[in-house]
Write a protein that binds this DNA or RNA. Structure first.
Length: 262
DNA sequence: CTCCATGTTTAGAA
DNA sequence: CTTCTAAACATGGA
């Protein structure tokens, strides 16, 4: 789930639910997810404060505690957020539960505990220290060109490299390249300006449509690869057979008829 | 039981 | 220094 569109949907979920409520208790159920902080420190920062606003950079979500710093979350492979009223029984696989004074809760849920929770004084500073590239949503063509310049290797690994471009992972790099008609194994040295413009345009379209669909595959546009991303499925554009290949340690899906190697 | 999975980090090789 | 690969991390689901 959690690539840029998924995290953006969760950000909006937080904006619509958890903001402005005073924190009563903080319960860390899986301390191994804490990086650079402790359950005690987190509790001290949050208790008695409320979240004022949120910020997203790539796959990271930041929640600003009033007159203090930011709670940061990374969702790994399986993380998500839940908001609700559940007393002392948070949802299954809850790793962090923030209970508000009005008995509502915000829970960070992750069945496969590969995510990360932390604290930072400033998201910008954190992004820099973590070598995060520019956020993929709304990036200018100029900035995207800067990101691509001098890159070696194939186009898919460039898109997934968080230091080059923050927010795109395996699923959405496949989707962007599918919509752009570019084969995932194309060498970066072959990506000319026309191809880059096409990637830029489709990247914004894909991100926008995915967010609009609440990042739910079933609600994605008909011509999206994402819901058909499995072996022996038919290409949603030409109805031919989709192929899969191992690339950069991940499984890439693509249509050999619609996507051309540059 | 085996294999696979949306992510990142790390070690070692090229 | 850059890039690539495999493995590790944790654990559910097919």
């Amino acid at each position: 789930m959690p690539e840029l569109p998924d995290v953006e949907v969760m950000k909006r979920q937080v904006d619509a639910t958890a903001l402005g409520r005073r924190v009563a208790r903080v319960h860390v159920l899986v301390p191994t997810l804490l990086k650079g902080t402790t359950a005690q420190a987190l509790g001290q920062h949050l208790k008695g404060r409320s979240f004022q606003h949120t910020h997203r950079h790539g796959k990271f979500l930041f929640l600003h505690a009033e007159d203090d710093g930011w709670l940061l979350m990374h969702f790994g492979m399986s993380g998500s957020l839940a908001f609700g009223t559940w007393g002392n029984e948070p949802p299954d696989y809850t790793c962090l539960n923030v209970a508000f004074e009005d008995d509502t809760n915000l829970a960070y849920v992750a069945p496969r505990k590969l995510g990360r929770l932390g604290w930072t004084a400033d998201p910008k500073q954190f992004a820099e220290a973590s070598s995060l590239g520019p956020d993929a949503a709304g990036i200018s063509l100029h900035a995207l060109r800067d990101s691509a310049t001098g890159r070696k290797g194939n186009v898919k690994s460039w898109l997934m490299n968080q230091a080059a471009l923050a927010g795109i992972g395996n699923i959405y790099s496949d989707e962007i390249l599918f919509q752009a008609g570019i084969h995932p194994a194309s060498a970066m040295t072959k990506i000319d300006d026309r191809a880059l413009e096409r990637i830029h345009k489709t990247m914004q379209e894909v991100i926008g449509a995915a967010i609009k669909a609440k990042a739910e595959p079933a609600k994605m546009p008909k011509h999206f690869l994402l819901p058909n991303r499995k072996e022996h499925a038919a290409c949603p554009k030409c109805n031919g057979a989709l192929h899969r290949m191992q690339q950069s340690g991940r499984t890439a899906y693509y249509c050999p008829a619609c996507q051309h190697k540059l």
